[in-house]
Write a protein that binds this DNA or RNA. Structure first.
Lengths: 194, 194
DNA sequence: GTAACTTGTTGAGCGTTGCTCAGCAAGCCG
DNA sequence: CGGCTTGCTGAGCAACGCTCAACAAGTTAC
């Protein structure tokens, strides 16, 4: 009734790809302020200007939706961190470390949201996160020119946890200079894997 | 109607304290299998053999309930980890480390659930977790006989993240002996705070 | 013993949210 | 024009958090 008397904005019809991309993008925009799993379908649909039902047309469940959002966030981060081709191993390590600190400084909220969402209990999200970390460990060990055994993997992964935590609190309250921080992190890593 | 024809178990009336304790205990039992925030009032009430309404009589909201459960879990862990009075500083440090590794080995699932719930997005739960860690940092720095400045705090907290991660994956796949693990952790901590 | 009072306890019901389904409507082809 | 695909919606269900008025099991006062 209201619809026929108030035509409203002309119904916009998008291609499947466009719509999916838009929905994921909205999820990414909401990430900094909302834990992934607490994104409400209602809110996302409202922002996209579509009905709840349509979202379920593209994502079979809420979980599938926020997993897609998480994956997009992970890919975004990987793109930012992975070393450009053709750099020396040493440059790769220092470069990644530097970019990682920069990343946390710049996308503080988003990064926290990602890390949190990851350990926040949902196995699907955790898996995406684990894949991302595994990928980074692989790249790091290659750049360090060290063999990739189980023990070293564990140590580098734990060092990631250390780094995430330290850079996070350091960004809140800088208790040392940026170069000092980078050197400390690098130093801990070196001692661990050798 | 059904109630009058089927008297069922005689309605048990408990004191307020008993009831609260029972509800928190049920929450703790559910913790290993369920992220705190996903505990459903229905499930808890069903296990306690009471109506949903009664739970809301004791806890004003679901959040208040699972925060109480989290706090109980944190207290439980602190009781286990804190050094007994009258031990030397050195014994305190090694003892806590040893007990912590044992803790993760024994209560693997529960501990993961606690850590996860903590970083899982809810500020209230995160606060309980932060208080717990702060408390541990304080004790650790005292035992190490080192001053308690902002920088050292950050480093010890980050070392906790490192330790949690490493002990967790080590428990899954032991890539070194237990004494080696303890020595490595202690070594990293020593180097960091000195 | 019973009336008054406190308080542990419940059932009915509301609003929100994840999810389903039957069907409308916009573009494309014959 | 008729038929087809497919983006899209509205109504509605089930589960969940939460409220509220009222009941009933103990306890105290007379």
């Amino acid at each position: 009734m209201a619809a026929s008397s108030t035509p409203g904005p002309p119904r916009l019809r998008r291609t499947a790809g466009d719509r999916r991309a838009q929905l994921v993008r909205i999820g990414l925009e909401l990430l900094p302020t909302t834990p992934v799993q607490e994104l409400t379908i209602d809110e996302v649909a409202r922002r996209a200007g579509i009905s709840r039902s349509l979202l379920f047309h593209y994502f079979a469940s809420k979980r599938e939706y926020y997993t897609a959002v998480t994956r997009a966030a992970a890919d975004f981060m990987l793109d930012h961190l992975l070393p450009p081709p053709g750099t020396s191993p040493e440059e790769q390590v220092t470069g990644m470390l530097d970019r990682y600190v920069g990343w946390v400084e710049t996308f503080r909220e988003s990064h926290l949201a990602f890390v949190r969402g990851a350990s926040g209990g949902d196995p699907w999200v955790a898996e995406v996160y684990q894949e991302t970390r595994d990928r980074l460990v692989e790249v790091a060990l290659t750049a360090l020119e060290l063999p990739d055994d189980a023990r070293r993997r564990q140590l580098v992964l734990a060092w990631f946890a250390f780094t995430e935590d330290l850079v996070g609190s350091w960004a809140d309250e800088p208790t040392m200079s940026r170069p000092e921080l980078l050197e400390l992190l690098r130093d801990v890593l070196d001692r661990l894997v050798r």
